[in-house]
Structures are given as structure tokens and as C-alpha cells.
Simulated assay, not measured.
Amino acid sequence: MVQRHRYNYGDDPSQWGELFLPGLPSGAAHRGVVVVVHGGYWRSKYGAELGEPLAADLAAHGFAAWNLEYRRVGNGGGWPFTFQDILAGIDKLQELAGHHALELAKVVALGHSAGGHLAVWAAGLDRLGQPGLAAEHRAVGANPDGVRLTGVVSQSGLLNLGDAEELNLSDGAVANLLGGPSSDFPGRYRYADPMAALPLSVPVFAVHATDDADVPLGMSVSYVEAARSGPVPAQLVMVPGDHFALIDPAAEAYVKCRELVAELLA
């Protein structure tokens, strides 16, 4: 039987997550955690209800899942607050590990759309503290002793912010997130772009739906091509369906994502 526990990681109404746990034999521990990061072009119109079916399904298949909510544009989010929340929400697992027998040697993120961007960005955090981005790194306030992701399954993620801005995806969503155009905030754009953290030392599966009309395939293709020469090249995985098939537990597209999560946790 799946258990659900809601916890706050800050004082804002959007700073919370819900932990979905499968039943365990007495004395056993949950081996790894899946952090579910919902999408919605970083806007407050969309919330953690998008990730709830995925977290419930993962728990039903034996995985501990942490469905993470965060501040978005329109309810206190945007730069740098959305980024702060993603890191703080993941770090909350350190506190929860003792309460719920979580083993944090493997923490994998499953992120859809804008959530894919945030998940892959968080996986590259340790590569972003370089001198040229020091001011942005301080603004986000990353904890050097925090929980680090050991793999990501990006579901039609916005993995190339430069191209996303140029294409004006979702009527200027990137500029909404970062407070203005890249010409005004080049440091923010570079810091927030998963491309800037390449090469990564953790695996990334860039899953993209063949009929996705919301996020162009180029978002995943350009990232995977740029990551090709790294120590752990990202992999492009094409699945059938549209943008939302990826978050439909009954769809083949989502089932493939769950299989990739299991592979990363194995």
C-alpha cells in the first residue's frame, strides 16, 4: 500500500513536496529516490498536481518518489527563487531520509518540460560555480553539502535556453523566468542553461515525444549533441505520443520513462 507524506521545505505556500512510499518489509530501506519535477513553462498556472500521478505510479512500482512543488513565475518564483526552491526541495531529502529509511546514494530526477530543464540544471550544479558565474551561483545559494542527483530522465525538457529564447517559446517564457532578455542578463541566462554545465558526469536520458507540439525536438537534440564528447554522454530517446503522453501513466511514452528511471536506480 502506498503511503503519502507532505512536508514543507520553506515558509512560502509553494515550498513543499509530497513523499510517496511503497510498502517495505520490516527493517528494509528504500533504495534511492525519484524526484518528480513538474512542468508548465515555470508559470504558477501549473503546479505539482501534474506530477502527482507519476509519483503515485512510481511508488506503486516500488520506488520512493518525492513530488516537488516550487515557486513559479506569478507566485513569487522566477530568478533566482525558482532555482533556490529546486535545490532546497531536493536537499530536504537529507532530513527525510532518517524518518523514512531513504538511502540517498542514488537520487534520480524525472522532470517534464520546464521540470526537465530544472532537473538537468540541478544535475549540473557542481559545474556552475566557475569564476565567470560566481555572482549567479551566490544568488542561487547552492549548498555544497546538499543532495546531488545521480541521473535524470528529462521528458521533452527545455534543455537549450538560448534556442528557447530565440524561438520565443510559450510567448516569452524564458524571459519571464529570468527577469528579462539575455541581452540584459547574460550571466543569468548562461547560469540557468543546462548547456552551460556540460559535460556532466551523471547520465541524462533526454526523452522526447514524436508528436510534441509544445516543446520542439531540437531542445533535446541540441543538448544531446553538445553532450556527446563528455565522460557520460546524454542519450536521446524518442517515444510515441504528444507532450502530455509523457505524464500519462497509461501511455507507452511514460512507461518508457519509468523503465529508464528503474535503470538509473539499478
Rank of each mutant, 00 (worst) to 15 (best):
G32C: 05
G62K: 08
V147D: 03
L87F: 02
Q3F: 06
V232D: 13
S113H: 02
V33M: 10
A109R: 10
G172H: 10
A139L: 02
L104N: 07
V140N: 03
A64H: 05
K92I: 01
K45H: 11
A59I: 06
V224S: 08
L68I: 08
L149I: 09
T82V: 07
E165P: 00
W79M: 11
L128F: 00
M195P: 12
R228N: 10
V255F: 04
G151Q: 06
G180S: 04
H30A: 12
P80I: 01
V33K: 08
A135N: 01
R4K: 15
L236H: 12
A59C: 07
V108D: 03
W42P: 09
D242M: 07
E136I: 00
L265A: 09
G89W: 03
N168S: 11
Q130K: 13
V34R: 04
Y191W: 08
V224E: 09
A114W: 03
A114D: 08
V239G: 10
D248G: 08
C257T: 12
H117P: 02
G78M: 10
G146I: 01
V107M: 05
V224D: 05
D11A: 15
E259T: 15
Y9E: 11
Q155K: 07
P240M: 12
L96G: 01
G124D: 02
N160E: 14
L158V: 15
S170V: 12
R258S: 11
V36C: 10
P203R: 13
N8F: 13
A251T: 02
T82C: 07
A206Y: 04
N160S: 13
G76P: 13
D171F: 13
A48K: 12
V232Y: 06
H99C: 00
A123T: 06
K106L: 07
T82W: 02
A109H: 05
V232K: 14
E225W: 11
R31H: 12
M1C: 11
G27L: 10
